[in-house]
């Protein structure tokens, strides 16, 4: 299976084909979708896209890490991380699609 990497350009192209707006406007709308997702997540709110998946923001507490090369202890400050939980539909399609 040849592995490809899609980018914003491919998503805009799909919107262009599917909806028939100009390429430029299609690109702007894709950007707008990503911008809204980012803004909501940056505010700490969960984003739930049915049949796609859920993005949620989790708080991680401070801990002592270690530099794996030198073995030195390094403090890791508390931080927020984003986790993505794929929907069943996505999981099923990825599992089925990759098998052949």
């Amino acid at each position: 299976m040849s592995e490809k990497t899609l980018t914003r350009m491919d998503l805009s192209e799909a919107v262009f084909r599917e909806v028939g707006l100009s390429r430029n406007e299609s690109a702007q709308l894709v950007e707008s979708v990503l911008q809204h997702l980012s803004d909501v997540l940056a505010s700490g709110e969960t984003v739930k896209i049915s049949s796609f998946g859920t993005f949620s923001v989790r708080d991680k507490s401070a801990r002592v890490g270690r530099n794996p090369k030198t073995g030195d202890e390094v403090p890791i400050s508390p931080r927020r991380v984003l986790t993505f939980r794929p929907s069943h539909l996505m999981k099923d399609r990825v599992a089925a699609g990759a098998k052949r």
Binding site: M1, E3, K4, T5, L6, T7, R8, D10, L11, A14, V15, E18, V19, L21, S26, L29, V30, V33, L34, L37, S38, I49, S51, F52, L82, F84, L89, M90, R93, V94, A96, G97, A98
Partner: peptide
Amino acid sequence: RHVERIVNTVFEEIIEALAKGDRVELRGFG
């Protein structure tokens, strides 16, 4: 209706790519 199709296309395209075993890289987002 149009906006619905636009938003759905974005998510659908990502699922389709992954189902083919491809990656989707959206700089700045993930």
